[in-house]
Design a protein around this nucleic acid. Structure first.
Length: 169
DNA sequence: GCCAACGTTGGC
DNA sequence: GCCAACGTTGGC
């Protein structure tokens, strides 16, 4: 799945899911420097994205899952690449992993910064109704990855639906 | 609250 | 290495 050897200078495009009750777009926007650690990832496929593919300068659609309705709120930028997720070593943390070796941490996180809120919220239903987005991962049935790659065409279409210019940077 | 889809775990 | 059981995700 890794493509890190090529295109290392090209910002890649992603969608990140967040439950607004856990960490909403507004919460991120109000954070110091509009920045946070993206911790708590405990899925190997997503871990590999973080380890191999998510680079500084990459852009991420910010998606509210388990929301009423779910949908895309804004976009953010990667400001720090993969480093160990400290919550895996904290027995009091809900994401504690007793099997992770501190000398070789199993789980990684990265930092992101909110860039721009969409002028209009784009609900999942609108993504589903748009034939140009029929291959987008987030509209696929049973697609549970909390970080998903997004193509340039999809990125542009979603931003357009959100009332923003389709500039990627 | 329901439940389909999917990932992980662990017995064998 | 198979696969049943279990836990989680997340739309509805």
């Amino acid at each position: 799945m890794s493509t890190s050897k090529k295109n290392s200078k090209t910002p890649r495009l992603w969608l990140v899911k967040s439950e607004p009750e856990a960490f909403s777009w507004q919460h991120l926007w109000d954070a110091p420097s509009r920045r946070t650690h993206w911790d708590g990832i405990r899925n190997y496929q997503v871990r590999n994205f973080i380890r191999d593919d998510i680079k500084k300068g990459d852009l991420l659609l910010y998606y509210h899952s388990n929301a009423k309705p779910p949908g895309v709120v804004g976009y953010a930028e990667v400001v720090r690449e993969a480093y160990p997720d400290h919550t895996q070593f904290d027995p009091k943390d809900g994401h504690y992993d007793s099997k992770s070796d501190p000398a070789d941490p199993r789980w990684l996180m990265f930092d992101l910064k909110a860039k721009k809120k969409l002028r209009q919220f784009v609900p999942l239903q609108d993504l589903k109704d748009n034939s140009k987005l029929k291959d987008m991962l987030v509209v696929q049935r049973g697609q549970r990855l909390s970080i998903q790659p997004v193509t340039l065409a999809e990125w542009r279409e979603v931003l357009k639906m959100g009332g923003l210019e389709a500039a990627t940077r």
